[in-house]
Simulated scan of single mutants.
Amino acid sequence: MAFTAFRGMNPWSQLIMTAFVILVSFLVLFLLAIVAAIPVIGLNEMLSSLSGGNWDDPGTIMILKYFQVVQSVGLFVLPPLVVAWLFDGNIARYLRLNTKVSKQVVGLAVFSLLAFAPFVTMVGKWNSDMSLPGFLSGMEEWMRTMETQAEQLIDRFIRVETTGGLLFNLFMIAVIPAVGEEFLFRGVIQKIFTKISRNYHWGIWISSFLFSALHMQFFGFVPRLLLGALFGYILVYSGSLWLPVLCHFVNNALGVLSLHAASRGNEQVERIFNFEFGDSSIYLWPLAAISLWLTYILIRAMKKAGPVNELVVKE
């Protein structure tokens, strides 16, 4: 069969092919979504919403949510499935979806995420306060504008009045990104760069860099990079892609729930989630150091308990 030719490609060719599949998948799905939505929404209203629109209009927000889901599926969910089929023929095997893990390993993965939270939060506060050199002030202003617009859009997405609206937000912001981004970045890209570098550490950090860079949020780049690396090590030491997916979901779901609580007037929940008490943020770097140390201990324990360490590391 012609498609079996893709299974002998070298890693660099696989990387190029993956980029091609991502581009084609996104364009095809986006065009199909536009064609499907025109009879329901109307072309003019759709174009107006996509070009900015009125974010106080529920109809505009509904359209933007629709295309947010389409974009996530086209960029992250569909491509790794196609790539896994092309490169291996067995999607579950290629993406490490059929590895059995113990309850102990699952617990270590989730607790490592929770233990890592204070350190990531402190690093995030430092990252958000960074400033570029004076000659790059124009770029910094553009970056902060993009960051502000992204935060405003997320804030508008979060503001829902019904349980159904909250569940859809969890699906859109927690479920789809957890599955899609982990399938693509940890399941495919990390695997490719591990083969290229012959070192799983390089594979983890390069894929995490690309994972963070793709979000186009400079002032949240470092914490997202660190979370990506954590998810990468969880994959390597557990042998199952479902654990990074689970941890990614937990991380995003907690963020959605805290923002939702804040939008309903319960800002105390958001302060606790961000380690803020009273009128100011607490920059407790000793707490961050303990957080990092505890995460390291938990990841080491997972490495010892994981069932397929050698199989993943040798890639």
Results as ranks from 00 to 15, higher is better:
Gln217Lys: 13
Gln217Asp: 14
Gln217Pro: 04
Gln217Arg: 13
Phe218Asp: 06
Phe218Ser: 13
Phe218Trp: 12
Phe219Tyr: 15
Phe219Asn: 01
Phe219Glu: 01
Phe219Ile: 00
Phe219Ser: 05
Phe219Trp: 13
Gly220Ser: 11
Phe221Val: 02
Phe221Glu: 03
Phe221Lys: 07
Phe221Cys: 05
Val222Tyr: 08
Val222Lys: 01
Val222Gln: 08
Pro223Lys: 00
Pro223Met: 03
Pro223Val: 01
Arg224His: 09
Arg224Val: 12
Arg224Cys: 11
Arg224Glu: 00
Arg224Asp: 02
Arg224Lys: 07
Leu225Asp: 00
Leu225Lys: 02
Leu226Asn: 01
Leu226Ser: 04
Leu226Asp: 00
Leu227Asp: 03
Leu227Gly: 02
Leu227Tyr: 00
Leu227Glu: 08
Leu227Pro: 02
Leu227His: 00
Gly228Tyr: 01
Gly228Ile: 04
Gly228Lys: 02
Gly228Ser: 06
Ala229Asn: 05
Ala229Ser: 12
Ala229Asp: 15
Ala229Pro: 09
Leu230Arg: 02
Leu230Phe: 00
Leu230Lys: 00
Leu230Cys: 02
Phe231Trp: 10
Phe231Ala: 15
Phe231Asp: 12
Phe231Cys: 10
Phe231Ile: 03
Gly232Ile: 01
Gly232Arg: 03
Gly232Pro: 06
Gly232Ala: 02
Gly232Phe: 03
Tyr233Val: 00
Tyr233His: 14
Tyr233Trp: 08
Tyr233Arg: 09
Tyr233Glu: 13
Tyr233Lys: 06
Tyr233Leu: 04
Ile234Ala: 08
Ile234Arg: 06
Ile234Gln: 14
Ile234Gly: 03
Ile234Asp: 10
Ile234Pro: 11
Ile234Phe: 06
Leu235Met: 11
Leu235His: 13
Leu235Gly: 08
Val236Asn: 14
Val236Leu: 09
Val236Ile: 10
Tyr237Asn: 10
Tyr237Arg: 05
Tyr237Pro: 03
Tyr237Trp: 14
Ser238Gly: 05
Ser238Gln: 04
Ser238Asn: 07
Gly239Asp: 06
Gly239Ala: 09
Gly239Arg: 00
Ser240Thr: 10
Ser240His: 05
Ser240Leu: 08
Leu241Glu: 05
Leu241Lys: 04
Leu241Ile: 12
Leu241Gln: 01
Leu241Thr: 07
Trp242Ile: 09
Trp242Arg: 15
Trp242His: 13
Trp242Met: 13
Leu243Gly: 09
Leu243Val: 12
Leu243Ile: 07
Pro244Asn: 07
Pro244Cys: 09
Pro244Arg: 01
Pro244Ser: 08
Pro244Phe: 07
Pro244Gly: 10
Pro244Gln: 07
Pro244His: 11
Val245Gln: 10
Val245Cys: 12
Val245Asn: 09
Val245Ser: 11
Val245Ala: 03
Leu246Ile: 11
Leu246Thr: 15
Leu246Pro: 13
Leu246Arg: 11
Leu246Asp: 06
Leu246Gly: 07
Leu246Ser: 06
Cys247Glu: 14
Cys247Trp: 09
Cys247Gln: 10
Cys247Arg: 10
His248Phe: 11
His248Leu: 11
His248Cys: 12
His248Gly: 12
His248Arg: 06
His248Pro: 13
His248Thr: 02
Phe249Ala: 08
Phe249Lys: 07
Phe249Gly: 11
Phe249Met: 09
Val250Gln: 14
Val250Glu: 08
Val250Thr: 14
Val250Cys: 14
Val250Arg: 09
Val250Ala: 12
Asn251Pro: 14
Asn251Ile: 06
Asn251Val: 15
Asn252Gly: 08
Asn252Cys: 10
